[in-house]
């Protein structure tokens, strides 16, 4: 059995996305911003649909640029709600998520109902479908992922400091708010890049599950980023392969289920923090005699 060249290139591109999403997501999870990407992810749909309506074509770069714009707009809306209303954070996130997704669905259904040529394929952004990606698309996804990794490389020290001790960072004169905004924007970028593979509804998992699994294996930031990236990579490739083998199967759910399986294994068998290690490992007496 030979694998088509295009499938290989797409798998490589999506693998890069999975790795970068795992790395960027680690910083988000450490900063306890795990679900910030979820609102942005649901909002991308509206931007993708708008970009399609404006440009009239289904070019991935244009659609993703639209998705990124609406993701950042939704995060801006979140900041406005927090700043100017008494609505609490959890409700604010749910409002932005639900309403922006509603806008996306309304636009998408409108496009489908009018039978605009090429509009039918937009539904692939809901649950992810990599079969339609070209080699050029994959190169774009990989390029943005590498740029995101470079950004993490540059800002790792600041992000780590702010994640673990924001009060100390603020007292030492670090611009905590700026670091936070950059981090959330970076998560939004990864969510948008992950869109073709995982879909708007599930792409959050790409930046949440690998970091949470990696956290079980190590207590150090550097190794955690690497492990998380590798888990993301494996999950992404498995998702692409599975949806390639089963024609109607969306890629997103398979990526998520693979990542969840790795998480479950980690939860059982990770050293020290795993379920097994806690049951079998040496017990430390907590009382002092």
């Amino acid at each position: 059995m030979t694998i088509p060249y295009n499938t290989l290139v797409v798998a490589a591109g999506v693998a890069a996305v999975g790795f970068a999403a795992g790395v960027v997501g680690s910083l988000g999870v450490l900063r306890k911003r795990a679900l910030a990407g979820d609102a942005a992810a649901h909002a991308t749909l509206a931007g993708v649909a708008t970009a399609f309506l404006v440009s009239g074509r289904r070019d991935l770069p244009v659609l993703l640029a639209g998705g990124l714009a609406s993701a950042l707009l939704s995060l801006g809306g979140l900041v406005l709600i927090r700043r100017f209303t008494k609505t609490r954070d959890d409700a604010a996130t749910a409002i932005v998520l639900g309403v922006s997704f509603g806008i996306g669905i309304a636009l998408l259904s409108g496009i489908t109902a009018r039978g605009i040529p090429g509009g039918g394929g937009l539904e692939q952004f809901l649950l992810g479908h990599t079969a339609a990606l070209t080699a050029a698309d994959a190169a774009l996804l990989a390029g943005v992922s590498i740029a995101a990794l470079a950004a993490v490389w540059l800002g790792l020290k600041e992000a780590t400091l702010v994640a673990f001790d924001p009060a100390f960072a603020a007292a030492s004169g670090w611009p905590v708010a700026v670091v936070d905004y950059c981090l959330v924007a970076l998560v939004a970028v990864m969510v948008v890049v992950g869109l073709p593979a995982a879909g708007a509804v599930l792409v959050t998992a790409l930046v949440v599950i690998p970091p949470v699994a990696a956290r079980l294996w190590t207590d150090r930031v550097g190794p955690m980023l690497l492990v998380s990236g590798c888990i993301g990579l494996v999950a992404a490739v498995a998702g692409v392969v599975a949806s390639g083998l089963v024609p109607r199967l969306a890629t997103g759910p398979m990526i998520v289920l693979t990542a969840a399986a790795i998480f479950f294994v980690s939860l059982l068998f990770a050293p020290r923090r795993g379920w097994l290690a806690k049951r079998l490992g040496p017990r430390f007496p907590l009382t002092v005699e």
């Binding site: 599950i209 759910p253 969840a260």
Partner: peptide
């Protein structure tokens, strides 16, 4: 929020599959 994020994305994915 991390644990909720893990659980609901996994269950939703399982449902779709």
């Amino acid at each position: 929020d991390s644990s909720a994020g893990v659980v609901f994305t996994t269950l939703f994915a399982a449902g779709v599959v």
